[in-house]
Computed example of a mutant assay.
Amino acid sequence: MRVTRNLRITAGVPLAAAALIALGAGTASAAIPVNKPMNGKATYYTDAGYGACGTRINASTQLLVAVSHTWWTTANPNNDPLCRGISVKVTYQGKTLTVPVKDKCPSCDSTHIDLSQPAFARFAPLGQGVINGLTWQFVRTGLAGQAIPLSAPITGSTLSG
């Protein structure tokens, strides 16, 4: 009888932990705080293929951003509000760049963004690897989720500084 009781208690612990994780995930995936500046850091990546929004990306050649998994709110990221005209406006040392959200960063915390290689290079040499102390915010854009090709002209409203 004692073995059965311990087995039930032991089996219940993982189930309780899974329930707490599921409940906690709901609060981590809060509404997108559009126009709310955040202080954080940026790294860069070079993935190519399909981004979390279900469109083809090339982080080596396009200006785009992957944001933390904590901001995604749907089970199917292709249907997530982040994929519908949401961009990230990044400011660092007097320069500002707005790039569309096209991907998810599974290892980023909520204030860490993963810029495409050319977007990162607008702010710092690639050899630096990490930019600390930048400000970024989600913004609504008319880009309709389109990644900006590296060859696209940069206007005063997209890059300044």
Rank of each mutant, 00 (worst) to 15 (best):
Q62W: 08
D80Y: 02
S60H: 12
F123V: 09
I86K: 09
N78Q: 07
D103Q: 01
A59K: 03
N79E: 06
P77T: 00
C53T: 05
A66K: 02
P118I: 04
G40Y: 02
V99M: 04
L23R: 05
K95E: 03
K36S: 14
Q128F: 02
A19F: 09
N39G: 13
K104C: 00
A48V: 15
G127Y: 13
Y50A: 00
T43C: 07
S116C: 04
A19C: 14
Y44A: 10
L64A: 11
H112L: 06
Q62P: 07
L97Y: 05
A22S: 13
P100D: 14
N132K: 13
D109M: 04
R122K: 15
P118M: 07
T55M: 01
I131P: 12
S87V: 04
V139R: 09
F120T: 06
V90W: 15
T91C: 12
L115T: 05
T98I: 07
A121M: 15
P125W: 06
V130G: 00
D114Q: 14
T91E: 12
I57L: 00
V101T: 13
T55P: 06
Q117V: 02
A52I: 11
V90K: 12
G127M: 11
G133Y: 07
V90C: 12
F138W: 08
A124L: 11
G127L: 10
W72Q: 05
T111F: 09
H112Q: 10
S29F: 05
Q62L: 08
L82M: 04
A66E: 02
V67T: 14
T55D: 09
T96D: 09
T43D: 06
G85S: 05
I32P: 04
W72C: 04
A48I: 13
A121W: 09
H112T: 12
Q128H: 03
S87E: 11
R84H: 08
A52W: 10
G49I: 03
A25E: 15
W71Q: 10
V65M: 00
S107D: 13
N78A: 13
Q128D: 00
S107N: 10
F138K: 01
Y50H: 01
A28I: 08
G26H: 07
N132F: 03
A59V: 04
L126H: 14
D47H: 12
T74A: 09
I113D: 13
L23G: 07
V90S: 05
V88M: 07
N78H: 08
P106I: 03
L64F: 05
D103N: 08
P125C: 06
R56K: 15
Y44D: 12
G129K: 06
T43K: 11
L82D: 03
Y50P: 00
T61R: 03
A16H: 11
G40N: 04
Y50K: 07
T61D: 11
T61W: 00
R140G: 08
S116P: 01
H112M: 02
N76T: 01
G49H: 03
M38G: 15
T61L: 10
A48C: 07
S68K: 05
A42I: 06
N39Q: 14
R140C: 10
Y50N: 05
